[in-house]
Structure formats: C-alpha cells, structure tokens
Simulated scan of single mutants.
Amino acid sequence: MTIVVTTPTGNVGSRVTRLLVQAGVRPRLLLRDPARLEPGLRAHVDAVPVDLTDRDAVLRATEGATALYWVCPPTGADDPVAAAAELGETAARAVSTHGIGHTVFQSSVGAEKRSGAGDIDGLAHTEEALDAASDTTGAAVCHLRCGYFTTNLLMDVDDLRAGVLRTPWDLDAPMPWVDPRDDGDVAAARLLAADWTGRQVQAVHGPADLTWHEVAEVVSTATGHPVRAERISDDDLRAGLTAAGLTQRQVEAVVGMAAGLRDLEPEDPRTVLTSTPTTLAAWAHEHLRPLLAA
C-alpha cells in the first residue's frame, strides 16, 4: 500500500499523516518544504519536495501510488477558482496516468452547487475532473464535503479579543461546524479501507449545526471572554479583504463563497455517517482560550 498525502502539514493533512503512520503505513508526503514536518515523523514517512502547481513534478511523485489524499491548497493566484481547477486537473491526470485505485478529495459543502459559490467553485471543478477520471479508469473517488472549520476562527482573533465575532452570514442561520482533526479521521479511515468503489460523497458535519449567535455564546463560555455576533454586509467584507491586500478576484471569490452558501441545504444530510464528535466548545477551550487570555 502506497498512500500519497498532499498538504501533510495542514490542519487536516497533519492528522491524516499521523493516523496513517500509527496504522503502520509509511505514507509518501508531497510538500514544498520537508523541513516543516515534525521531527519525530520524518523517520516514518517518505517526504518528497513538490510544488502542487508543477504538474510534471506531481505526476512523477505519484507514480506507484495506490491511494491519494488530495487537497487544493491556496496558491496566492490572482484567480483562486481557476487555480484550484488546474490543481484538480493535475490530480485527475495522476489518477488516470498511474491507475491510482482510491482518491479522497478534500472538498466542501457547497461544491454540489457546481457554480455560484465563489472559491468553492474551484473544488466543484476538481470533483468533476476526478469523477471523469473515475469514469474512464474505474478508480474509486470520495469527495469529503466538510462544513465550516472551527480553525477559521483563528483568523479573527483580534476581533474576538475586542469582543466581536463578525460574519457575512445570517446570525440565525445554522451551519455545520467541524474540527479539522475529525475530518482527518474520516479521510484516514477512507484511505486505509480498500473495499469501497465508485464515486462517493462523504459529508463531514461535526456534531451539531450552530447559528452564529450560538457560536458566540459557546466561544464566550469556553474561553471566559465575552463575545457577541455581528453581521456585516458583503461590501464591508469586500472592504476588509481589500484592506488586507487581496486582489479584486481574490476578494470576489471569498464574497461569492459567502453569498453562495446562504440558505444552502447540504446535499448529504446529517446522519450518524456524517456527524463527527469534537464540539466547538472543546475546540475553543483548547485553541482559543489561551489566545484570548493573552
């Protein structure tokens, strides 16, 4: 079994890597800088320095793979949707060229729309490319459609310290909140299993859907730092992203994602198969409490 893992130092990929190693697998890790790996892991993996935007390098690095965990990471490209789509084409080419039997793709809730969801449209294009590869080769592919990652709150620490949780979404609309580590658990389980076939979608919804008011209450209780939810307009979001240095296309990709996910009912409903255990309260106590107490 040769399992290739992309973005192995990311929030999900690092969890996938650790679980594979603990299961007795020696994964092949594709990353730009192998020095970023935890020192204790280096003896248990095969690290290959690769830029995922280099298609030829990716094809060389995936030769002989039996399974693939694929992520379309941010590239800094002016058009992030097109960049993600190109990465997806690279993954599909690797599957077709090498006959990779199983691929687990890190997708997102909203990809089922196929268009009109900003940044997520690039993931939808990747799903379609991998589906086409599956159709022509018989390879199995599973799209992990995840809810809103708890780690997104780490981008708002300054606002949270000021007691405000700002969002462009309806404050009373519930959303699935997911700890990326739980997503890694699902991804690793899929990679280690060899008896599933065809095209599959596996939603990862966390333990509960929460409104933004509920999120603010949970964060306040878990951290001991009072926080209130505040809705901002799309124009306010644009202004903030522009001030942060994003290009116009990058800004519109984020704004489009926010708009595209409003009133979205995930294609894969919440069931025992799609619910994962880690609560927002547990995550916030572990990760946010030290930052807000500083």
Rank of each mutant, 00 (worst) to 15 (best):
G147Q: 00
G147E: 00
G147N: 01
F149G: 11
T150M: 15
T150K: 04
T151N: 08
N152C: 08
L153Y: 13
L153E: 09
M155I: 15
M155N: 15
V157G: 09
V157A: 12
V157L: 11
D158E: 14
D159K: 08
A162K: 14
G163Q: 02
V164I: 15
T167V: 13
W169Q: 14
L171Q: 07
L171C: 10
L171G: 06
D172I: 04
A173C: 13
A173Y: 11
A173G: 09
V178E: 00
D179T: 03
D179C: 08
P180R: 01
R181P: 07
D182N: 04
D185K: 13
D185C: 09
D185Y: 09
D185P: 07
V186Q: 03
V186C: 05
A188V: 01
A189N: 11
R190H: 14
L192P: 04
L192Y: 06
L192K: 05
A194N: 12
D195Q: 07
T197W: 13
G198S: 10
Q200R: 15
Q200I: 07
V201K: 05
Q202E: 06
V204K: 01
H205Y: 02
H205N: 03
G206C: 07
A208I: 10
T211I: 03
T211F: 03
W212I: 07
V215G: 02
V215L: 05
V215K: 01
E217K: 13
E217T: 15
E217W: 12
V219N: 00
S220I: 04
S220N: 14
T221L: 02
T223L: 04
T223N: 04
T223F: 00
G224R: 05
P226F: 15
R228S: 15
A229K: 05
A229W: 01
I232A: 04
I232G: 02
I232C: 07
S233C: 04
D234G: 13
L237E: 10
A239Y: 14
A239E: 14
G240K: 08
